[in-house]
Design a protein around this nucleic acid. Structure first.
Length: 273
DNA sequence: CACGAGACCTGTTCGC
DNA sequence: TGCGAACAGGTCTCGT
């Protein structure tokens, strides 16, 4: 489900609080419950349950689509994959049927991991780098330059869409924002990465940054039951708009499958190279 | 190396 | 209305 803007929104909400919900920072963990064991990637459930209590949540941040909680003694990483969500709830609230893990806090609040499709994963580790260091650069990192992006594109001969959604190549883009960025940049999703000019590469990186920044500003994209509270769905130009007129040229938006993902583009604005 | 297919899962929407 | 197919903000592993 969530891509970079949705994960960023979730992290900000937990960190700063939101209306009637407090910040989770500095809260101390009472205990944890694991309702679907396979959600836990590491360590084993017994070790997990014994290591968690008593630790304090000292910081929360995002790397790619991973959420990282810095605890007193180690780190909790959560990847929401397709359908995961995190919510800070009052301890006595009735649990959703799809709750997979709960962390009860001494404050009386509980951090609840809900994940209907069970694809999400949780790691408790003292070495988060072993997981996070595989990720490519952060697209919004200003030290990541256009020339770096161009060189990286030239280093592969791959279809551009699957390449920019490959987390080892670039961290954080998924199906929605890649389709939107490619449309914004006027690049066909099947274009070979090393066929892009310097100018096109620059346009693409700029488009990626624009859609992500706007996505974050609007708290992410809410297109169905999976993620609520965002407004970027109103800005979508091609994603899930098959047959609708392109907002730029009125040509009907087409849907094809690329790298096994539904892919939406305008045949007029995004010509095949 | 690049790419497609199949797995992992459950829920919603589409098409006849 | 009903029922199966298609589809869904992701990623891994295997075969070609």
């Amino acid at each position: 489900m969530p891509e970079l803007p949705e994960v960023e929104t979730i992290v900000n909400t937990l960190k700063n609080g939101n209306g009637d919900k407090p910040s989770i920072l500095a809260m101390e963990i009472e205990d944890t419950r694991l309702l679907w064991e396979r959600s836990l990637a590491e360590p084993n459930p017994q070790e997990y349950k014994s290591c968690i209590p008593g630790q304090k949540i000292e910081d929360i941040d995002r790397r790619g689509k991973f959420i990282r909680f810095s605890l007193s003694n180690n780190f909790l990483l959560i990847h929401l994959r397709m359908s995961g969500s995190l919510d800070l709830q009052e301890g006595n609230k009735k649990l959703s049927k799809h709750t997979r893990m709960i962390i009860n806090l001494k404050s009386g609040w509980s951090l609840v991991f809900i994940d209907p499709r069970k694809f999400g994963r949780i790691w408790l580790t003292s070495d988060p780098g072993k997981i996070l260091n595989k990720l490519g650069p952060e697209p919004l990192d200003k030290s990541f330059k256009t020339e770096d992006f161009y060189k990286k594109l030239q280093g592969h001969h791959r279809q551009i869409k699957p390449l920019i959604t490959d987390q080892k190549f670039l961290a954080g883009l998924g199906n929605i924002y890649s389709d939107e960025a490619l449309h914004n940049a006027g690049i066909h999703p099947l274009t070979p990465s090393d066929a892009l000019s310097q100018k096109q590469s620059g346009n693409l990186l700029q488009s990626i940054r624009e859609v992500l920044t706007e996505g974050i500003r609007l708290n992410g994209t809410s297109i169905d039951w999976v993620y609520q509270g965002g407004d970027f769905q109103d800005q979508l130009r091609v994603y899930r708009r098959t047959g609708e007129p392109c907002p730029v040229c009125d040509e009907p938006i087409q849907r094809i499958v690329v790298g096994q993902r539904g892919t939406h583009f305008c045949p007029q604005c995004q010509p095949v190279i």
